[in-house]
Simulated assay, not measured.
Amino acid sequence: MAISTLQNTFEQQFSLWVLYFFAYAFVGWLWESAYVSVRKRHWVNSGFLIGPIIPVYGFSMAAVLAVIEPFENNLVVLYLLSALLVTLIEYVTSWLMEQLFHARWWDYSDVPLNINGRVAIPISLFWGVGVVLIVKFIQPLVAHLVLYLAVHYGIFMVIGLIAILMFDFGFTLANVIAFGAATKRIGDAIEDKKGELKAKVADTGAKLEHEHAWLEAFRANTGEREQLPNLNFVQRRLLRSFPHLRLNNTRTSVKDISALAELRKRLAQRK
């Protein structure tokens, strides 16, 4: 009886924390996608994964909820602790993703008081305010939903969600590994074309018609364009979802790589 009770207690606690992770990973995805979509004036899935979650938000809020209970009624401590925890998780996540994928997925280098471009004090202060508001106003609703799901669906729902997450992560990971090699080839081709056009201008004394003359050159030259790797939907989405993405294996901007990838897609659809 004692072992059965202990097992049930462990399963319940495990289910609750996993559901908290997924709940706040979804809330974070909804917030960030809405923010980016409003700025770009069209819908953007702002997550790294295909599914509607951003794991860093789930981990951050789960960590905060695990630590803040003794300080829940002390707004000052709650604010400082929340800002510190979220900042630490954001920094570690940025570093790990750069080591794994050889790319900086977000960059705060232009924000004052940043630390290696991975985190910035103004952003951290904002996260502190956001977490306090979530704990005070959103968490009671989320806690009610999570408890309902844990009681009615329990470990089976948790196992299903983890399985979907693992499939999503594996599929995205496979695409990102190929993405690095493909974007390097595209970036190198763009830099070669820009250099070729600049040399031509220097030799003839002419002027480039506009700054995107290199893109028009690829549009006109089917052979050169078709020799480049074709980015799939997932890879093109990553370029759109992370406008501040900085690839370590090429000095070409993500904006230029994305422009050429979209050009290839449009021209291929016309055939």
Rank of each mutant, 00 (worst) to 15 (best):
I186S: 01
V234W: 04
H212S: 15
I159C: 13
G160C: 10
V176C: 05
S109Q: 05
S37T: 08
I177H: 09
I121G: 02
L49K: 00
I186K: 01
H42M: 08
Q227I: 05
I3Y: 09
Y35V: 09
I190M: 00
V77C: 07
R246Q: 14
I186A: 00
D203V: 11
I162Y: 04
P52D: 09
L267D: 08
Y20H: 06
V151N: 05
G47V: 04
I54K: 06
P55I: 03
A199G: 02
S15T: 14
V44H: 10
K184I: 00
T250F: 06
L145F: 09
V18Y: 01
T183F: 02
V146L: 07
D110K: 14
W214A: 03
H244I: 03
P55F: 04
Q139N: 13
N232L: 07
F169Y: 10
F137E: 09
R41F: 05
G117V: 06
L88T: 11
W214C: 08
H244Y: 08
V86L: 02
L208G: 10
R185I: 00
Y79R: 01
V56C: 02
I155G: 06
G117K: 11
M157Y: 05
L141I: 08
H210Q: 03
V158L: 08
L19S: 07
W106F: 05
Y91A: 09
L6C: 11
D192C: 11
F137P: 01
V56S: 03
V201T: 12
L239D: 13
V142C: 10
L228S: 02
L173S: 11
I121N: 01
D168R: 07
S46E: 06
N73L: 04
R236Q: 15
G187Y: 07
K184A: 08
A120Y: 03
A217P: 07
I89Q: 01
Y153Q: 14
K271T: 10
N74E: 09
S124L: 05
R236H: 09
